[in-house]
């Protein structure tokens, strides 16, 4: 096994069932993440990117209305097979989580310092004053000035960007080897977003943690990620290093997304993707993107294209790109 490999997800499936229908939110997802790497998971709303993080953190499991299958090896151990109790030790400790809305992660009635100190207290059984000094160190690390005073303040005394910094400090307090960030900057203003993204890259360089960054913003991906996986309707449709993906996109969906993004200073007319994303409970056979795809042909209707290797490190799930490979 590769020593650098941090997370190895294989055939992950997460379905939601109700009386009438089954929603295949995540369907047969496979990807890997190396130590010190930032992998971007991009897609539009409802593509299953957030469900993927919930499945990895085991916030959904095999219950009456939820169905979870597949493997997710984290440092060699399968997260999907862990018991809830074992997961509790991993979550917030070896795996840090940063949510979109910082308020949902911060408790309004405890001081910020106390909430961060709670992490080493709980997971490393650190003594109270030691945990507090860890909390202070973390706040300093995420660039909160005057951190000793700030640690004694409450969430409502923090502005939006500072709250997100505090949440990052909390996620880092357990010294995690994997950070999962779900749209960490979507709720923030652009100038603050730039600060937070910059901070995340810096922290990655320092700690060599792997980062799984969930976002809908291709711009954010281009700024910080090393590798990108594009999701559509519960599946990865293309996966490549960031330069490769932006300069040589293969899947029509990726191409469509890039062509529909306005770029500053460019006078070109935007080319939108026609139609709208499919309902995840009314899925027909074949390629899920075929209805919106300008290049769709007969085979797309019947055969679902597998994620196909088209170059070193570059995979695409499209009959066209695999055909092109075969014809060489």
């Amino acid at each position: 096994m590769n020593d650098d490999l941090l997370l190895d997800v294989r055939h992950l499936k997460a379905y939601f069932r109700s009386k009438q229908r089954t929603v295949k939110a995540v369907d047969d997802l496979s990807f890997t993440l190396k130590k010190g790497e930032i992998l971007g998971l991009v897609g539009e709303s409802g593509c299953g990117k957030s469900t993927t993080t919930k499945a990895l953190l085991r916030l959904i499991g095999n219950q009456r209305k939820e169905y979870l299958e597949g493997e997710a090896f984290f440092e060699g151990e399968d997260l999907i097979k862990k018991s809830d109790k074992q997961m509790q030790k991993i979550r917030g400790n070896k795996i840090g989580f940063i949510a979109q809305n910082p308020m949902s992660s911060l408790n309004p009635v405890f001081t910020i310092g106390n909430q961060i100190a709670e992490v080493p207290q709980m997971h490393q059984r650190a003594a109270k004053n030691k945990a507090w000094s860890i909390a202070l160190k973390m706040l300093q690390k995420v660039g909160i000035s005057d951190h000793e005073t700030r640690a004694k303040q409450y969430a409502h005394q923090f502005s939006g960007g500072m709250k997100q910094r505090a949440v990052i400090a909390m996620a880092l307090a357990g010294n995690p080897s994997l950070l999962i960030a779900d749209e960490p900057t979507t709720a923030l203003d652009v100038t603050i977003q730039a600060q937070i993204l910059d901070l995340m890259v810096k922290l990655r360089d320092e700690t060599q943690a792997g980062v799984l960054l969930i976002t809908h913003d291709l711009g954010v991906v281009a700024e910080v990620c090393d590798r990108v996986a594009v999701m559509y309707a519960g599946k990865i449709v293309e996966q490549a290093p960031v330069d490769e993906l932006f300069h040589h996109p293969q899947h029509p969906y990726t191409k469509g997304l890039l062509a529909s993004m306005p770029k500053i200073g460019s006078r070109k007319k935007l080319i939108p993707i026609s139609g709208h994303p499919p309902n995840l409970y009314e899925m027909q056979g074949g390629c899920l993107f075929q209805e919106r795809c300008p290049f769709a042909f007969d085979r797309c209707k019947n055969v679902e294209p597998p994620l196909h290797k088209i170059a070193e490190n570059h995979q695409s799930a499209c009959h066209l790109s695999s055909e092109r490979m075969n014809s060489f």
């Binding site: 730039a194 711009g219 700024e223 960031v242 890039l258």
Partner: peptide, 12 residues
């Protein structure tokens, strides 16, 4: 600053 803060889909 606003112009420079906008994430651009251009990795290079």
């Amino acid at each position: 600053a606003l112009l420079s803060a906008i994430p651009i889909a251009e990795p290079q």
